[in-house]
Amino acid sequence: MPENQEALSGFIEGHVAPSLQELRILQKAPSHRALIRKALSSRTVEVRTVDQTDVFVFGGTVIGGMDHRVTTLVSSHARRVAADETLTRRHLELQNLPVPQEDQPLPDGLDIRAYVAGPQVVAAVAYVPLAALEEQLPPEEILDSEQLASLRSGPANPEGGIAVDVTELLDPSLTELAADALWSVPGLAAGAVDLWVPQLDSAAEAVVLSLDVEASVVTHHLPALGEARDVAGAIVDQLLIRASR
């Protein structure tokens, strides 16, 4: 975390403060698997469970599956690359995508997670660390007790912060960067891309931190603040599109 936090304080002031009262209560958020199942069911995709893993069947044909949180939109190759920092970095560099400079601190910026399904970003959130938020906006004065409890232990913000939907705030150059990062890895059609972004309206100095092929969709379905995004639906649509092999 850089010492200079102007980007973060500016974001809190511009995008968190005006709507903090609308903070979602996340105590009863559905699980990742439940959200995926709901999306499957609404598209009449049947789920068969084999040894605690899921097989997705549409019209009698296996169109994909899910092993823990990893769907068949993730190749074995991609899983291995994403799990290895050095390999991920090499894949990104081969596509001339910006990565953090080794041994140099990150510039002032925001921690953004963009979920890419197929060709595009379907949702993005900014993570706001709780400490920074509480310092700037004393929550006791703004939130009711239930919201306060949720803020401090919400299931969708395990990293001690809140997720704020920024899907529509991201400049197209940033969503392109996220999609390009995902597509730099062979056989990867859905996953989260973590970016470090100095400004939401420009990709200047933005870098790709990592890829997460096991990312939960819950953060995007129920961000603490901002609009809900149907990432599970986008994942299932990709499974259906890509099933026609």
């Binding site: 893993t53 092993d67 068949t72 939109l73 074995s76």
Partner: peptide
Amino acid sequence: SDVVVGGMDAVITSLVSHQARRI
């Protein structure tokens, strides 16, 4: 033409999902 189309990890290609490899 500079676009990633696939890959290979030891002997298996990116045509194999993570789930399939585990199975």
